[in-house]
Nucleic acid binder design. Structure first.
Lengths: 118, 118
DNA sequence: CCGTATCCTCCAGGATACTG
DNA sequence: CAGTATCCTGGAGGATACGG
């Protein structure tokens, strides 16, 4: 009679088995934390982001930005409607709640590079 | 003449464009942080881990444990050589340097569930 | 009990060309 | 400048059965 009923956590329609996997579902993937890391310091235009991330493709950057925007972590502001367009990306207030995490993630990366790089 | 030369970071033979992506390369993926999250509190046996992670498959859990062990984040200790085996997984000292990150990742997940769950 | 061995699916991310 | 539109590929992760 007893169902497994392993209390799944929900956010934006997706289910996660624990709080850690929920966070990783939102900021996981190859590029999301990198984008957030750059936007943490300052708002940036599309091309500025691209230059900060030399190995990402246009399509992938575009998709990741859209996903982050849909999850409410970043906002997209258009300044000119006539080409050349000017678009700036920045963290939302919700996105800013991630700053401590991004900082510790970046900090640990630096620590590893300094002490174990090879 | 000037090469792009975008100083890549290296760890265990892989290259990353920035410190944040290096960290995510090591603890990213669907299950690694979940495993570390459970091992952070206590060492656990294979089956205990499985029960903590009801939706992971045996094969995937096995592969992720092996990857974490290869990166030096967890250690595997075998207690009996005759079946039934007893194997315990725990964080290494290096793995323990991740505890602050895991805690903030888990904490943010909890925060989101409390304030935005739907 | 603690995994491996096979086989398979799916989609994140890449390459490239093109547009408002 | 800031993206879409197509097409494609590799590998993460899943399902299931079996082995020490």
């Amino acid at each position: 009679m007893e169902e497994k009923e392993t209390k799944m956590l929900k956010f934006r329609g997706k289910e996660y088995p624990c709080c850690a996997s929920l966070t990783m579902g939102i900021i996981g993937g190859k590029w999301k934390t990198v984008i957030l890391y750059h936007l943490m310091k300052e708002k940036l235009r599309y091309n500025e982001l691209r230059k900060s991330m030399p190995t990402v493709t246009e399509r992938t950057l575009s998709l990741q930005l859209k996903a982050l925007e849909e999850d409410g972590l970043i906002k997209r502001k258009v300044y000119t409607s006539k080409p050349p367009l000017k678009v700036e990306y920045s963290l939302t207030d919700f996105g800013k709640t991630l700053i401590p995490i991004i900082k510790s993630i970046a900090g640990w990366g630096d620590y590893v590079v300094e002490n174990y790089s090879r």
